[in-house]
Design a protein around this nucleic acid. Structure first.
Length: 293
DNA sequence: CGTTCAACCTGGGCGC
DNA sequence: TGCGCCCAGGTTGAAC
């Protein structure tokens, strides 16, 4: 589920936790298996308690919280929501899938907050890392430039000689960080590019369109607080659904008419994952040149 | 280098 | 009702 816009929305939704101290931490074990943590759960909890959440930010599809302790080196709590993970400051959809619970208190005053990481499928991960670990997990070798600011130069440099299909390449987090299956489809629709096109066959103009579409689609999705689709497991930290799913032009729309040319949207499989596109608007030799947006 | 497949999990939907 | 199968927003590692 969570791609860049959803994770960005989660980070904004938990920004109120900055400045609060972790009074208690728990990794509840319900009927579901415990989630993967680094270090082991008991050590993780011990190291977290007493620290203060100093900064919350996003790196690609990860939520990163800098946790500080007076007179001690900072640590970073790195959470990867993967498919169904959510950061919540409200009641979770179910109690048994709460994977991390932080009880937060203000040092002065009475402000308190309960911050949860909830993950139905349990594919998410929780890591508490030092500066070296953070660099290894989230550094430039692991994650490329952020999708909100990626340029045509970035993409052409990293992918221009690749033989991979452009849609598959856009999911490579080392090339550009934050794009997932929904937004890869929406980006290429907006750019008017066939998702099967080999990267090395894309012109400079095509990379310009891909980069501009990436920034525009992701920014628009952030403005609409992400996409809640299907069973609607995704929600903001305050429990509201996202709204960008109403603006999807191709994702999840197999067989329905393209909003621009009325030709039915097609679903194919690339790298074991669904790709949706318009065979007319995203054709290499369209009868009518697509008019982006 | 690239692709393919399985694995990690839960749960909804569908055909029989 | 129930069972088996397919599907799902992600990532990783092994095999080819």
């Amino acid at each position: 589920m969570p791609e860049l816009p959803e994770v960005e929305t989660m980070c904004r939704g938990i920004a109120g936790c900055v400045g609060l101290r972790i009074a208690a931490a728990a990794l509840p074990r319900g009927r579901v298996r415990p989630i993967a943590t680094v270090p082991r759960p008991a050590v993780l909890v011990k190291r977290l308690v007493g620290r203060t959440i100093a900064v919350v930010f996003r790196r690609g599809k990860r939520v990163v919280m800098e946790v500080a302790a007076a007179g001690d080196a900072p640590l970073w709590l790195v959470i990867e929501p993967r498919m169904t993970g959510l950061m919540l400051v409200t009641e979770p959809p179910s109690a048994e899938h709460v994977r991390l619970e932080l009880c937060l208190h203000a040092d002065r005053g009475s402000a308190t907050e309960r911050l949860l990481f909830w993950d139905q499928r349990g594919l998410g991960t929780i890591r508490l890392l030092d500066a070296r670990g953070l660099e290894r997990a989230c550094g430039a070798a692991k994650l490329g430039p952020d999708g909100l600011v990626v340029t045509a130069d970035d993409l052409a440099f990293r992918l221009g000689r690749s033989r991979r299909a452009v849609k598959v390449a856009l999911l490579d987090q080392r090339a550009v960080a934050g794009i997932g299956n929904i937004y890869a489809a929406e980006i290429l629709f907006r750019a008017g590019i066939d998702p099967r096109t080999s990267c090395r066959r894309l012109s400079r103009d095509a990379w310009e369109r891909v980069a501009a579409s990436t920034r525009a689609i992701l920014a628009e999705a952030v403005r609409h607080e992400g996409s809640s689709i299907g069973d609607e497991t995704y929600q903001t930290a305050a429990g509201a659904p996202g709204r960008f799913q109403k603006r999807h032009r191709v994702y999840g729309r197999e067989g329905r008419p393209c909003g621009r040319c009325r030709v039915p949207i097609v679903r194919i499989v690339q790298a074991q994952r669904s790709t949706f596109y318009c065979p007319q608007c995203q054709c290499r030799h369209p009868k009518r040149r697509p008019c982006p947006r």
